[in-house]
Design a protein around this nucleic acid. Structure first.
Lengths: 267, 267
DNA sequence: CGTATATTTGATATCAATCAATACTCGTGG
DNA sequence: CCACGAGTATTGATTGATATCAAATATACG
Protein backbone atom coordinates (compact mmCIF):
# COMPACT_ATOMS: atom_id res chain seq x y z
CA UNK A 1 0.00 0.00 0.00
CA UNK A 2 1.09 3.58 -0.46
CA UNK A 3 1.34 4.06 3.29
CA UNK A 4 4.76 2.46 3.36
CA UNK A 5 7.23 4.81 4.92
CA UNK A 6 4.65 7.39 5.89
CA UNK A 7 5.16 6.74 9.53
CA UNK A 8 8.88 7.29 9.23
CA UNK A 9 8.26 10.59 7.53
CA UNK A 10 5.77 11.61 10.19
CA UNK A 11 8.25 10.81 12.90
CA UNK A 12 10.11 13.93 11.77
CA UNK A 13 13.06 15.12 13.77
CA UNK A 14 13.16 12.25 16.20
CA UNK A 15 14.78 9.23 14.62
CA UNK A 16 13.98 6.13 16.65
CA UNK A 17 14.53 2.60 15.55
CA UNK A 18 11.59 0.24 15.70
CA UNK A 19 13.25 -1.78 18.45
CA UNK A 20 13.82 1.35 20.49
CA UNK A 21 10.24 2.36 20.14
CA UNK A 22 8.90 -0.85 21.52
CA UNK A 23 10.89 -0.63 24.71
CA UNK A 24 9.78 1.13 27.83
CA UNK A 25 12.09 3.80 29.26
CA UNK A 26 11.19 4.26 32.90
CA UNK A 27 14.26 6.37 33.54
CA UNK A 28 14.16 8.51 30.46
CA UNK A 29 14.28 12.20 31.27
CA UNK A 30 12.32 13.00 28.10
CA UNK A 31 9.68 11.11 26.23
CA UNK A 32 11.16 10.89 22.77
CA UNK A 33 8.30 9.22 21.06
CA UNK A 34 5.72 11.50 22.57
CA UNK A 35 7.50 14.78 22.79
CA UNK A 36 8.43 15.29 19.21
CA UNK A 37 5.55 17.13 17.68
CA UNK A 38 2.97 19.76 18.27
CA UNK A 39 0.30 19.87 20.87
CA UNK A 40 1.05 16.99 23.10
CA UNK A 41 0.49 15.69 26.57
CA UNK A 42 4.16 15.64 27.41
CA UNK A 43 4.62 19.27 26.46
CA UNK A 44 5.44 21.73 29.19
CA UNK A 45 6.45 19.15 31.77
CA UNK A 46 9.79 19.21 33.55
CA UNK A 47 12.33 16.46 33.01
CA UNK A 48 11.34 14.85 36.28
CA UNK A 49 7.67 15.02 35.44
CA UNK A 50 8.28 13.60 32.00
CA UNK A 51 10.08 10.70 33.58
CA UNK A 52 7.08 9.94 35.73
CA UNK A 53 4.85 10.08 32.70
CA UNK A 54 7.22 7.87 30.74
CA UNK A 55 7.08 5.32 33.55
CA UNK A 56 3.42 4.59 32.96
CA UNK A 57 3.57 4.92 29.19
CA UNK A 58 3.98 2.14 26.72
CA UNK A 59 4.98 2.99 23.13
CA UNK A 60 3.56 0.79 20.40
CA UNK A 61 3.03 0.52 16.65
CA UNK A 62 0.16 -1.01 14.76
CA UNK A 63 -0.34 -1.65 11.07
CA UNK A 64 -2.80 0.00 8.72
CA UNK A 65 -6.31 -1.35 9.06
CA UNK A 66 -6.12 -2.18 12.76
CA UNK A 67 -9.10 -1.14 14.83
CA UNK A 68 -7.61 -0.46 18.26
CA UNK A 69 -10.58 1.24 19.92
CA UNK A 70 -14.11 -0.12 19.69
CA UNK A 71 -17.12 1.92 20.69
CA UNK A 72 -18.86 0.39 23.69
CA UNK A 73 -15.93 -1.71 24.88
CA UNK A 74 -14.35 -1.16 28.33
CA UNK A 75 -12.26 1.99 28.12
CA UNK A 76 -9.24 0.95 30.16
CA UNK A 77 -6.61 2.60 28.03
CA UNK A 78 -5.79 5.99 26.60
CA UNK A 79 -3.68 6.73 23.52
CA UNK A 80 -1.51 9.63 22.52
CA UNK A 81 -0.67 9.40 18.81
CA UNK A 82 2.91 9.93 17.73
CA UNK A 83 2.71 9.03 14.06
CA UNK A 84 0.36 7.93 11.31
CA UNK A 85 -3.31 8.69 10.74
CA UNK A 86 -6.35 7.26 12.52
CA UNK A 87 -10.01 7.55 11.61
CA UNK A 88 -12.36 7.98 14.56
CA UNK A 89 -15.95 7.00 13.85
CA UNK A 90 -19.35 6.08 15.20
CA UNK A 91 -21.75 3.58 13.66
CA UNK A 92 -25.54 3.49 13.62
CA UNK A 93 -27.34 0.19 14.10
CA UNK A 94 -27.89 -0.24 10.34
CA UNK A 95 -24.26 0.32 9.50
CA UNK A 96 -24.32 4.00 8.59
CA UNK A 97 -20.96 5.44 9.57
CA UNK A 98 -19.94 8.92 10.63
CA UNK A 99 -16.23 9.64 10.85
CA UNK A 100 -15.91 12.29 13.56
CA UNK A 101 -12.28 13.02 12.88
CA UNK A 102 -8.95 12.03 11.41
CA UNK A 103 -6.38 12.00 14.19
CA UNK A 104 -2.67 12.54 13.76
CA UNK A 105 0.53 12.92 15.81
CA UNK A 106 -0.14 14.77 19.05
CA UNK A 107 -3.83 13.90 19.17
CA UNK A 108 -5.28 12.16 22.14
CA UNK A 109 -7.71 9.22 21.96
CA UNK A 110 -9.86 7.31 24.38
CA UNK A 111 -12.82 9.49 25.38
CA UNK A 112 -15.15 7.35 27.46
CA UNK A 113 -18.67 7.47 28.82
CA UNK A 114 -19.81 5.14 31.54
CA UNK A 115 -16.55 3.20 31.39
CA UNK A 116 -16.79 2.39 27.70
CA UNK A 117 -15.28 4.05 24.66
CA UNK A 118 -17.44 6.72 23.03
CA UNK A 119 -16.21 5.87 19.52
CA UNK A 120 -14.19 3.43 17.45
CA UNK A 121 -10.74 4.13 16.01
CA UNK A 122 -9.01 2.45 13.07
CA UNK A 123 -5.49 3.07 11.77
CA UNK A 124 -5.58 4.08 8.11
CA UNK A 125 -1.77 4.07 7.87
CA UNK A 126 0.78 2.36 10.09
CA UNK A 127 0.35 4.18 13.40
CA UNK A 128 2.51 4.68 16.47
CA UNK A 129 1.23 5.84 19.81
CA UNK A 130 1.86 5.98 23.55
CA UNK A 131 -0.55 3.86 25.51
CA UNK A 132 -1.60 4.57 29.10
CA UNK A 133 -3.66 2.69 31.64
CA UNK A 134 -6.47 5.04 32.52
CA UNK A 135 -6.16 4.16 36.21
CA UNK A 136 -2.45 4.95 36.27
CA UNK A 137 -2.83 8.19 34.39
CA UNK A 138 -5.59 9.24 36.75
CA UNK A 139 -3.24 8.80 39.71
CA UNK A 140 -0.45 10.72 38.04
CA UNK A 141 -2.78 13.53 37.06
CA UNK A 142 -3.67 14.10 40.71
CA UNK A 143 -0.05 14.97 41.34
CA UNK A 144 0.67 16.76 38.08
CA UNK A 145 -2.14 19.19 37.32
CA UNK A 146 -0.19 20.40 34.31
CA UNK A 147 -1.22 17.24 32.52
CA UNK A 148 -4.84 18.13 33.08
CA UNK A 149 -4.22 21.59 31.71
CA UNK A 150 -2.63 20.09 28.65
CA UNK A 151 -5.60 17.78 28.19
CA UNK A 152 -8.01 20.68 28.60
CA UNK A 153 -6.23 22.43 25.76
CA UNK A 154 -6.52 19.33 23.59
CA UNK A 155 -10.20 18.90 24.44
CA UNK A 156 -10.97 22.54 23.62
CA UNK A 157 -9.10 22.23 20.37
CA UNK A 158 -11.17 19.21 19.43
CA UNK A 159 -14.33 20.94 20.55
CA UNK A 160 -13.70 23.87 18.22
CA UNK A 161 -12.95 21.50 15.36
CA UNK A 162 -16.20 19.66 16.16
CA UNK A 163 -18.15 22.90 16.06
CA UNK A 164 -16.67 23.82 12.70
CA UNK A 165 -17.59 20.36 11.48
CA UNK A 166 -21.18 20.86 12.64
CA UNK A 167 -21.38 23.98 10.48
CA UNK A 168 -19.99 21.98 7.58
CA UNK A 169 -22.36 19.04 8.04
CA UNK A 170 -25.43 21.12 8.78
CA UNK A 171 -25.13 23.95 6.32
CA UNK A 172 -22.50 23.53 3.61
CA UNK A 173 -22.94 22.13 0.09
CA UNK A 174 -20.94 19.12 -1.12
CA UNK A 175 -18.57 21.38 -3.03
CA UNK A 176 -18.02 23.60 0.01
CA UNK A 177 -17.43 20.56 2.22
CA UNK A 178 -14.71 19.19 -0.04
CA UNK A 179 -13.02 22.60 -0.37
CA UNK A 180 -13.10 23.07 3.41
CA UNK A 181 -11.74 19.56 3.96
CA UNK A 182 -8.77 20.07 1.64
CA UNK A 183 -7.89 23.44 3.16
CA UNK A 184 -8.16 22.10 6.67
CA UNK A 185 -5.87 19.16 5.93
CA UNK A 186 -3.37 21.51 4.30
CA UNK A 187 -3.31 23.92 7.24
CA UNK A 188 -3.07 21.06 9.70
CA UNK A 189 -0.07 19.62 7.86
CA UNK A 190 1.60 23.03 7.87
CA UNK A 191 1.00 23.44 11.59
CA UNK A 192 2.74 20.14 12.14
CA UNK A 193 5.77 21.27 10.20
CA UNK A 194 4.98 19.32 7.06
CA UNK A 195 4.46 20.82 3.60
CA UNK A 196 1.03 22.39 3.12
CA UNK A 197 1.12 21.26 -0.50
CA UNK A 198 0.65 18.76 -2.00
CA UNK A 199 -1.92 17.45 0.45
CA UNK A 200 -1.53 13.86 1.56
CA UNK A 201 -4.85 12.00 1.58
CA UNK A 202 -4.19 8.68 3.33
CA UNK A 203 -7.91 7.92 3.61
CA UNK A 204 -10.16 6.48 0.89
CA UNK A 205 -12.93 8.44 -0.86
CA UNK A 206 -15.33 6.43 1.27
CA UNK A 207 -13.64 7.61 4.48
CA UNK A 208 -13.83 11.21 3.26
CA UNK A 209 -17.52 10.70 2.44
CA UNK A 210 -18.18 9.33 5.92
CA UNK A 211 -16.42 12.34 7.40
CA UNK A 212 -18.24 14.92 5.28
CA UNK A 213 -21.69 13.34 5.39
CA UNK A 214 -21.66 12.50 1.66
CA UNK A 215 -21.30 9.41 -0.55
CA UNK A 216 -18.18 8.16 -2.30
CA UNK A 217 -19.67 9.20 -5.62
CA UNK A 218 -20.39 12.75 -4.52
CA UNK A 219 -16.88 13.12 -3.07
CA UNK A 220 -15.43 11.94 -6.35
CA UNK A 221 -17.64 14.24 -8.43
CA UNK A 222 -16.87 17.27 -6.25
CA UNK A 223 -13.13 16.66 -6.45
CA UNK A 224 -13.38 16.27 -10.23
CA UNK A 225 -15.34 19.51 -10.39
CA UNK A 226 -12.76 21.43 -8.33
CA UNK A 227 -10.08 20.03 -10.62
CA UNK A 228 -12.09 21.20 -13.63
CA UNK A 229 -12.31 24.66 -12.07
CA UNK A 230 -8.53 24.73 -11.87
CA UNK A 231 -8.31 25.26 -8.10
CA UNK A 232 -6.78 21.86 -7.38
CA UNK A 233 -5.04 19.04 -9.19
CA UNK A 234 -5.15 15.37 -8.29
CA UNK A 235 -2.38 12.81 -8.48
CA UNK A 236 -3.22 9.19 -7.84
CA UNK A 237 -5.81 8.44 -5.21
CA UNK A 238 -3.94 9.87 -2.26
CA UNK A 239 -2.56 13.25 -3.17
CA UNK A 240 -4.10 16.61 -4.05
CA UNK A 241 -2.40 19.91 -4.84
CA UNK A 242 -3.95 23.30 -4.19
CA UNK A 243 -3.41 25.45 -7.28
CA UNK A 244 -5.46 28.45 -6.16
CA UNK A 245 -5.64 28.70 -2.37
CA UNK A 246 -7.67 31.90 -2.44
CA UNK A 247 -10.17 30.44 -4.87
CA UNK A 248 -10.47 27.28 -2.78
CA UNK A 249 -11.03 29.33 0.39
CA UNK A 250 -13.73 31.33 -1.40
CA UNK A 251 -15.47 28.12 -2.41
CA UNK A 252 -15.12 26.76 1.12
CA UNK A 253 -16.89 29.84 2.46
CA UNK A 254 -13.99 30.64 4.76
CA UNK A 255 -13.35 34.31 5.52
CA UNK A 256 -10.05 34.19 7.34
CA UNK A 257 -9.48 32.83 10.83
CA UNK A 258 -11.72 29.83 10.52
CA UNK A 259 -9.00 27.35 9.88
CA UNK A 260 -7.68 25.23 12.73
CA UNK A 261 -5.59 27.17 15.22
CA UNK A 262 -4.89 26.69 18.88
CA UNK A 263 -7.54 27.68 21.41
CA UNK A 264 -6.68 30.21 24.07
CA UNK A 265 -5.79 28.64 27.29
CA UNK A 266 -8.75 29.07 29.59
CA UNK A 267 -11.76 28.24 27.44
CA UNK B 1 -43.72 35.76 25.23
CA UNK B 2 -44.21 32.41 26.85
CA UNK B 3 -40.77 32.55 28.41
CA UNK B 4 -42.07 34.66 31.28
CA UNK B 5 -41.29 32.98 34.54
CA UNK B 6 -39.25 30.22 32.99
CA UNK B 7 -36.13 31.47 34.61
CA UNK B 8 -37.75 31.41 38.01
CA UNK B 9 -38.69 27.81 37.47
CA UNK B 10 -35.23 26.94 36.26
CA UNK B 11 -33.66 28.59 39.28
CA UNK B 12 -35.03 25.68 41.27
CA UNK B 13 -34.07 25.39 44.91
CA UNK B 14 -32.18 28.61 45.15
CA UNK B 15 -34.57 31.53 45.48
CA UNK B 16 -32.71 34.78 44.95
CA UNK B 17 -34.29 38.14 44.42
CA UNK B 18 -33.27 40.06 41.31
CA UNK B 19 -31.56 42.73 43.41
CA UNK B 20 -29.58 40.10 45.25
CA UNK B 21 -28.46 38.49 42.06
CA UNK B 22 -27.00 41.66 40.64
CA UNK B 23 -24.78 42.22 43.63
CA UNK B 24 -21.31 40.83 44.09
CA UNK B 25 -20.60 38.78 47.21
CA UNK B 26 -16.85 38.76 47.75
CA UNK B 27 -17.19 37.22 51.19
CA UNK B 28 -19.71 34.55 50.41
CA UNK B 29 -18.54 31.12 51.49
CA UNK B 30 -20.65 29.50 48.80
CA UNK B 31 -21.69 30.65 45.37
CA UNK B 32 -25.44 30.43 45.53
CA UNK B 33 -26.23 31.42 42.02
CA UNK B 34 -23.64 29.10 40.56
CA UNK B 35 -23.71 26.17 42.87
CA UNK B 36 -27.31 25.21 42.58
CA UNK B 37 -27.50 22.76 39.74
CA UNK B 38 -25.77 19.98 37.97
CA UNK B 39 -22.36 19.90 36.45
CA UNK B 40 -20.84 23.20 37.36
CA UNK B 41 -17.57 24.98 37.80
CA UNK B 42 -18.15 25.66 41.47
CA UNK B 43 -18.77 22.00 42.23
CA UNK B 44 -16.25 20.15 44.34
CA UNK B 45 -14.55 23.21 45.74
CA UNK B 46 -14.11 23.87 49.46
CA UNK B 47 -15.86 26.78 51.14
CA UNK B 48 -12.65 28.77 51.07
CA UNK B 49 -12.06 28.03 47.42
CA UNK B 50 -15.62 28.92 46.55
CA UNK B 51 -15.15 32.25 48.27
CA UNK B 52 -12.15 32.98 46.09
CA UNK B 53 -14.12 32.06 43.01
CA UNK B 54 -17.05 34.19 44.16
CA UNK B 55 -14.69 37.12 44.55
CA UNK B 56 -13.99 37.30 40.83
CA UNK B 57 -17.47 36.36 39.74
CA UNK B 58 -20.23 38.74 38.82
CA UNK B 59 -23.82 37.39 38.66
CA UNK B 60 -26.09 38.91 36.04
CA UNK B 61 -29.39 38.45 34.20
CA UNK B 62 -30.29 39.31 30.66
CA UNK B 63 -33.61 39.26 28.84
CA UNK B 64 -34.70 36.96 26.06
CA UNK B 65 -33.27 37.91 22.69
CA UNK B 66 -30.03 39.38 24.00
CA UNK B 67 -26.90 38.36 22.12
CA UNK B 68 -24.21 38.45 24.78
CA UNK B 69 -21.38 36.72 22.89
CA UNK B 70 -20.49 37.60 19.32
CA UNK B 71 -18.23 35.42 17.22
CA UNK B 72 -15.01 37.21 16.37
CA UNK B 73 -15.23 39.80 19.14
CA UNK B 74 -12.54 40.02 21.85
CA UNK B 75 -13.13 37.17 24.27
CA UNK B 76 -12.42 38.87 27.57
CA UNK B 77 -15.16 37.23 29.55
CA UNK B 78 -16.38 33.75 30.40
CA UNK B 79 -19.90 32.77 31.43
CA UNK B 80 -21.29 30.01 33.59
CA UNK B 81 -25.04 29.71 33.05
CA UNK B 82 -27.26 29.41 36.10
CA UNK B 83 -30.71 29.65 34.50
CA UNK B 84 -32.56 29.99 31.20
CA UNK B 85 -31.65 28.72 27.74
CA UNK B 86 -29.07 30.07 25.30
CA UNK B 87 -28.55 29.20 21.66
CA UNK B 88 -24.93 29.01 20.56
CA UNK B 89 -24.40 29.43 16.84
CA UNK B 90 -22.02 30.16 14.00
CA UNK B 91 -22.87 32.07 10.83
CA UNK B 92 -21.53 31.71 7.31
CA UNK B 93 -20.81 34.83 5.24
CA UNK B 94 -24.13 34.55 3.37
CA UNK B 95 -26.17 34.30 6.56
CA UNK B 96 -26.58 30.53 6.80
CA UNK B 97 -26.72 29.65 10.48
CA UNK B 98 -25.70 26.55 12.38
CA UNK B 99 -26.77 26.31 16.01
CA UNK B 100 -24.06 24.20 17.68
CA UNK B 101 -25.94 23.79 20.93
CA UNK B 102 -28.61 24.91 23.33
CA UNK B 103 -26.98 25.71 26.65
CA UNK B 104 -28.65 25.53 30.03
CA UNK B 105 -27.86 25.90 33.73
CA UNK B 106 -24.40 24.56 34.55
CA UNK B 107 -23.05 24.99 31.04
CA UNK B 108 -19.98 27.03 30.39
CA UNK B 109 -19.62 29.59 27.59
CA UNK B 110 -16.83 31.62 26.10
CA UNK B 111 -14.58 29.32 24.08
CA UNK B 112 -12.04 31.48 22.28
CA UNK B 113 -9.51 31.18 19.49
CA UNK B 114 -6.83 33.81 19.00
CA UNK B 115 -8.39 36.03 21.63
CA UNK B 116 -11.80 36.19 19.99
CA UNK B 117 -14.98 34.22 20.63
CA UNK B 118 -15.39 31.08 18.53
CA UNK B 119 -19.19 31.47 18.34
CA UNK B 120 -22.13 33.74 19.09
CA UNK B 121 -24.62 33.21 21.90
CA UNK B 122 -28.16 34.56 22.21
CA UNK B 123 -30.56 34.15 25.14
CA UNK B 124 -33.78 32.53 23.95
CA UNK B 125 -35.39 32.93 27.39
CA UNK B 126 -34.45 35.29 30.23
CA UNK B 127 -31.03 34.02 31.27
CA UNK B 128 -28.91 34.31 34.39
CA UNK B 129 -25.22 33.59 34.54
CA UNK B 130 -21.99 34.17 36.42
CA UNK B 131 -19.55 36.28 34.49
CA UNK B 132 -15.75 36.08 34.88
CA UNK B 133 -12.88 38.10 33.53
CA UNK B 134 -10.78 35.60 31.63
CA UNK B 135 -7.57 37.11 33.01
CA UNK B 136 -8.77 36.79 36.59
CA UNK B 137 -10.00 33.26 36.15
CA UNK B 138 -6.70 32.31 34.57
CA UNK B 139 -4.86 33.50 37.70
CA UNK B 140 -7.19 31.69 40.03
CA UNK B 141 -6.92 28.48 38.03
CA UNK B 142 -3.16 28.45 38.54
CA UNK B 143 -3.79 28.11 42.25
CA UNK B 144 -6.86 25.90 42.12
CA UNK B 145 -6.26 23.06 39.66
CA UNK B 146 -9.62 21.62 40.67
CA UNK B 147 -11.26 24.30 38.56
CA UNK B 148 -9.33 23.11 35.58
CA UNK B 149 -10.43 19.56 36.27
CA UNK B 150 -14.02 20.68 36.41
CA UNK B 151 -13.63 22.51 33.14
CA UNK B 152 -12.04 19.46 31.54
CA UNK B 153 -15.12 17.48 32.52
CA UNK B 154 -17.38 20.10 30.98
CA UNK B 155 -15.31 20.23 27.80
CA UNK B 156 -15.36 16.43 27.42
CA UNK B 157 -19.08 16.42 27.97
CA UNK B 158 -19.55 18.98 25.24
CA UNK B 159 -17.16 17.10 23.00
CA UNK B 160 -19.20 13.91 23.27
CA UNK B 161 -22.39 15.84 22.59
CA UNK B 162 -20.70 17.40 19.56
CA UNK B 163 -19.70 13.96 18.26
CA UNK B 164 -23.25 12.67 18.64
CA UNK B 165 -24.44 15.77 16.80
CA UNK B 166 -22.00 15.05 13.96
CA UNK B 167 -23.57 11.61 13.55
CA UNK B 168 -26.99 13.23 13.51
CA UNK B 169 -26.04 15.92 10.97
CA UNK B 170 -23.99 13.66 8.75
CA UNK B 171 -26.05 10.50 8.66
CA UNK B 172 -29.56 10.76 10.09
CA UNK B 173 -32.81 11.50 8.24
CA UNK B 174 -35.01 14.48 9.14
CA UNK B 175 -37.38 12.22 11.06
CA UNK B 176 -34.51 10.61 13.00
CA UNK B 177 -33.03 14.02 13.79
CA UNK B 178 -36.27 15.29 15.29
CA UNK B 179 -36.81 12.12 17.31
CA UNK B 180 -33.23 12.28 18.62
CA UNK B 181 -33.62 15.95 19.47
CA UNK B 182 -36.78 15.40 21.50
CA UNK B 183 -35.32 12.46 23.41
CA UNK B 184 -32.12 14.34 24.15
CA UNK B 185 -33.99 17.36 25.52
CA UNK B 186 -36.13 15.07 27.65
CA UNK B 187 -33.14 13.23 29.13
CA UNK B 188 -31.27 16.47 29.73
CA UNK B 189 -34.25 17.92 31.62
CA UNK B 190 -34.45 14.77 33.75
CA UNK B 191 -30.73 14.94 34.52
CA UNK B 192 -31.25 18.47 35.76
CA UNK B 193 -34.01 17.39 38.09
CA UNK B 194 -36.86 18.66 35.95
CA UNK B 195 -39.69 16.54 34.54
CA UNK B 196 -38.69 14.52 31.47
CA UNK B 197 -42.20 15.01 30.10
CA UNK B 198 -43.72 17.18 28.74
CA UNK B 199 -40.66 18.58 26.98
CA UNK B 200 -40.19 22.31 27.13
CA UNK B 201 -39.17 23.75 23.75
CA UNK B 202 -38.18 27.37 24.41
CA UNK B 203 -36.67 27.72 20.94
CA UNK B 204 -38.53 28.40 17.67
CA UNK B 205 -38.89 25.89 14.85
CA UNK B 206 -36.30 27.95 13.02
CA UNK B 207 -33.82 27.51 15.88
CA UNK B 208 -34.47 23.77 15.88
CA UNK B 209 -33.95 23.71 12.12
CA UNK B 210 -30.66 25.57 12.45
CA UNK B 211 -29.58 23.07 15.11
CA UNK B 212 -30.58 19.97 13.13
CA UNK B 213 -29.39 21.13 9.71
CA UNK B 214 -32.94 21.31 8.32
CA UNK B 215 -35.46 24.01 7.36
CA UNK B 216 -38.36 25.31 9.47
CA UNK B 217 -40.79 23.58 7.12
CA UNK B 218 -39.08 20.20 7.43
CA UNK B 219 -38.98 20.48 11.22
CA UNK B 220 -42.68 21.23 11.23
CA UNK B 221 -43.52 18.39 8.86
CA UNK B 222 -41.45 15.90 10.83
CA UNK B 223 -43.07 16.89 14.12
CA UNK B 224 -46.51 16.59 12.51
CA UNK B 225 -45.55 13.18 11.19
CA UNK B 226 -44.38 11.95 14.61
CA UNK B 227 -47.62 13.25 16.08
CA UNK B 228 -49.54 11.36 13.38
CA UNK B 229 -47.61 8.21 14.28
CA UNK B 230 -48.80 8.61 17.86
CA UNK B 231 -45.35 8.74 19.45
CA UNK B 232 -45.64 12.37 20.56
CA UNK B 233 -48.28 15.03 21.08
CA UNK B 234 -47.82 18.78 20.65
CA UNK B 235 -49.33 21.55 22.72
CA UNK B 236 -48.84 25.12 21.55
CA UNK B 237 -45.53 25.98 19.91
CA UNK B 238 -43.32 25.29 22.89
CA UNK B 239 -44.27 22.00 24.44
CA UNK B 240 -44.13 18.38 23.30
CA UNK B 241 -45.11 15.21 25.14
CA UNK B 242 -43.54 11.84 24.50
CA UNK B 243 -46.36 9.27 24.30
CA UNK B 244 -44.23 6.29 23.28
CA UNK B 245 -40.64 6.65 24.47
CA UNK B 246 -39.61 3.28 23.10
CA UNK B 247 -41.10 4.03 19.70
CA UNK B 248 -39.43 7.41 19.63
CA UNK B 249 -36.07 5.88 20.55
CA UNK B 250 -36.50 3.31 17.79
CA UNK B 251 -37.17 6.08 15.27
CA UNK B 252 -34.20 8.05 16.59
CA UNK B 253 -31.95 5.04 15.94
CA UNK B 254 -30.78 4.96 19.54
CA UNK B 255 -29.89 1.61 21.01
CA UNK B 256 -29.41 2.42 24.69
CA UNK B 257 -26.60 4.40 26.17
CA UNK B 258 -26.38 7.01 23.47
CA UNK B 259 -28.25 9.67 25.36
CA UNK B 260 -26.32 12.35 27.21
CA UNK B 261 -24.54 11.10 30.30
CA UNK B 262 -21.45 12.29 32.11
CA UNK B 263 -18.03 11.43 30.70
CA UNK B 264 -15.56 9.53 32.82
CA UNK B 265 -13.10 11.72 34.47
CA UNK B 266 -9.86 11.26 32.61
CA UNK B 267 -10.87 11.43 28.94
C1' DC C 1 -60.16 40.63 20.94
C1' DG C 2 -57.03 41.88 17.23
C1' DT C 3 -52.73 41.75 15.13
C1' DA C 4 -47.88 40.52 14.31
C1' DT C 5 -45.40 36.61 14.28
C1' DA C 6 -44.72 31.78 14.10
C1' DT C 7 -46.24 27.56 12.30
C1' DT C 8 -48.39 24.47 9.25
C1' DT C 9 -49.60 22.87 4.83
C1' DG C 10 -49.22 22.51 -0.25
C1' DA C 11 -46.81 22.49 -4.92
C1' DT C 12 -42.59 22.28 -7.18
C1' DA C 13 -37.52 22.35 -7.78
C1' DT C 14 -32.96 20.72 -6.73
C1' DC C 15 -28.95 18.66 -4.86
C1' DA C 16 -27.14 14.69 -3.58
C1' DA C 17 -28.23 9.57 -3.12
C1' DT C 18 -28.75 5.44 -5.42
C1' DC C 19 -28.16 2.13 -9.00
C1' DA C 20 -25.11 0.68 -12.67
C1' DA C 21 -21.12 0.28 -15.53
C1' DT C 22 -16.49 1.51 -16.73
C1' DA C 23 -11.79 2.97 -15.77
C1' DC C 24 -7.99 3.54 -12.93
C1' DT C 25 -4.39 2.37 -9.12
C1' DC C 26 -1.25 0.01 -7.16
C1' DG C 27 0.63 -4.00 -5.19
C1' DT C 28 1.84 -8.77 -6.78
C1' DG C 29 3.91 -12.15 -9.34
C1' DG C 30 5.63 -13.69 -13.77
C1' DC D 1 10.06 -4.58 -16.33
C1' DC D 2 5.62 -5.53 -17.47
C1' DA D 3 1.14 -7.78 -17.14
C1' DC D 4 -2.49 -9.06 -14.01
C1' DG D 5 -6.31 -8.44 -10.88
C1' DA D 6 -8.61 -6.94 -6.68
C1' DG D 7 -9.86 -3.09 -4.77
C1' DT D 8 -10.86 1.78 -5.52
C1' DA D 9 -12.40 5.58 -8.02
C1' DT D 10 -14.86 7.78 -11.72
C1' DT D 11 -18.65 8.59 -14.65
C1' DG D 12 -23.52 8.17 -16.17
C1' DA D 13 -28.69 7.75 -15.58
C1' DT D 14 -32.30 8.07 -12.53
C1' DT D 15 -34.61 8.57 -8.12
C1' DG D 16 -35.77 10.64 -3.94
C1' DA D 17 -35.55 13.38 0.33
C1' DT D 18 -35.48 17.80 1.59
C1' DA D 19 -35.26 22.72 0.12
C1' DT D 20 -37.70 26.33 -1.80
C1' DC D 21 -41.58 29.09 -2.96
C1' DA D 22 -46.28 30.25 -1.69
C1' DA D 23 -50.45 30.53 0.93
C1' DA D 24 -53.35 29.50 4.76
C1' DT D 25 -53.69 28.86 9.91
C1' DA D 26 -52.61 29.09 14.57
C1' DT D 27 -50.41 31.26 18.53
C1' DA D 28 -49.69 34.37 21.90
C1' DC D 29 -49.08 38.82 23.46
C1' DG D 30 -50.60 43.56 23.86
Amino acid sequence: MHEQGRDQATAGRVAVSASNVRRLHPDAATCDTCEARGFNMCHALSADELARLAAIMSPQRIEAGTTFIEEGCPADELFNLTGGTVKVFKLLADGRCQVTGFMMAGDFLGLSRGGTYAYSATAITPVSFCRFQRSQLRCLVDELPKIERQMLGLAMNELMAAQDQMVLLGRKTARERIATFLLTLSVRAARRGQPANPIDLPMTRGDIADYLGLTTETVSRSLTQLKGDGVISLKGNHSATILDAEGLAAIAGIEDGELPSAPDHIA
